[in-house]
Design a protein around this nucleic acid. Structure first.
Lengths: 157, 157
DNA sequence: ACCCAATCTTACGTTGACGTGAGTTTCAGA
DNA sequence: TCTGAAACTCACGTCAACGTAAGATTGGGT
C-alpha cells in the first residue's frame, strides 16, 4: 500500500497555511478522525488525511461553511464511502437507498450553494471590472495632462 | 432630488435578511455613515444607503471579508467618489494621481480575490458534480434491482 | 547518552459579529 | 389625545474559531 509519507503537524500546517492549533482543533471537533500517531503520541498525517483537510479548508474559505456544517457534510460523504466498501466486500448494507437519497440531497444542496456563490461573484466581478476600467481611463487622462503641463521628465529617480 | 422613499430599520432588515441590530452595528463600525434621522431620532434609510448595505453584505457573504476590510474598501471607494465630485465642481484636488493609483491597486486586489474564489468554486463544482453523477448512477441500479426483486408496485401511497 | 527543539495535553484568553434584555422615547393610527 | 407597537441607547452576554501560556514528554541529530 505504497506512498505513506508521514508529515508532522508543523509541516502540514505550513503546507496548508494554517497553525498546528487549527489542526488540533479540527481533530477535536471530529473533522479528521483516525489521525495516526507515533508510539510516543505525536501526530502523523498521511497524504489522504491532508487532502481531507484541504477539502475542509475549501469548504470553509471558499464556501463559508461553519465547522459544524462541514462535519455534517463530511460525515455523509464518509457514510457513502463506507457504503461503497461494504458493496465491494459483497456485504449487503441496509438502508442503502435511503442513504443514497440523502447523499444526493446533500450534494445538491452544496452544489446549489456553489452556484449561488459563483453567480454573486460573477456579478461583483463585472461591477469591479467596470469601475477599474473607468479609473484606468481617468488615470490615462491624468497622465496626459501632466505630460502636457510639465517638461518632459522621463526616468526621474 | 426625486426618489427619496424612506425605509425604517425593520423594513430594511427584513428586505435584506438581517436584523436591526446588524444595521446598527454596521453603522457603529463606520460602514454606513450619514444615515438620515427623523426629528425624534429614528433612522431612515434611502435607496442609495440600502444599496451600500447590500454591497457590504455581498463583500461579507460572497467574498468573506471582515467588516474591517470592508470598511477600508468602502472608504477608498468613497474617496474616489469625493474626488469625482470635486472634479465636476471644477475644483482641483491634490494628490489625485496617488489616490487614483491606490484605488486601482485596491480594486485589483478585490478582483484577484474574486478570481481566486471563483477558481476554487469552479474546481469544487466539478468535483461535486462528478460525485453526484456517480451516486445517481448507483441509485438507478438500486431502483432497477428493486423493480426486479419485488412485485410491481406503481403508485404506492 | 544527551540535548534541545518539536509535540503533547490542559485550560484559560481573545476577537469578531452580532444577540439580548432593560428602560426610555417616538410614531402612526383610531 | 391617547395608546400600543416600534425604535432608541447603553451595556452586558454569547458563540465559533482559534490564540496562547504552562508544564510534561518525545524524537532526531551529534
Amino acid at each position: 500500500m505504497g506512498r505513506d509519507k508521514a508529515w508532522t503537524v508543523e509541516a502540514v500546517a505550513e503546507r496548508l497555511g494554517v497553525t498546528p492549533r487549527t489542526l488540533h482543533y479540527y481533530e477535536e471537533m471530529g473533522l479528521i478522525p483516525n489521525v495516526q500517531r507515533t508510539p510516543g503520541g505525536h501526530r502523523l498525517y498521511d497524504e489522504e488525511t491532508i487532502e481531507r483537510i484541504e477539502h475542509i479548508l475549501r469548504l470553509k474559505d471558499a464556501l463559508g461553511y461553519s465547522l459544524q456544517e462541514i462535519r455534517s457534510i463530511l460525515s455523509t460523504e464518509d457514510q457513502l464511502r463506507t457504503y461503497r466498501e461494504r458493496i465491494r466486500e459483497g456485504r449487503e448494507p441496509e438502508h442503502n437507498l435511503h442513504m443514497l437519497e440523502e447523499s444526493v440531497r446533500l450534494l445538491e444542496d452544496v452544489l446549489q450553494h456553489i452556484d449561488e456563490k459563483m453567480a454573486k461573484l460573477a456579478a461583483m466581478r463585472e461591477q469591479y471590472l467596470d469601475r477599474l476600467a473607468r479609473i484606468r481611463a481617468r488615470l490615462d487622462r491624468e497622465a496626459l495632462h501632466r505630460s502636457l503641463d510639465k517638461p518632459i521628465d522621463s526616468e526621474g529617480q
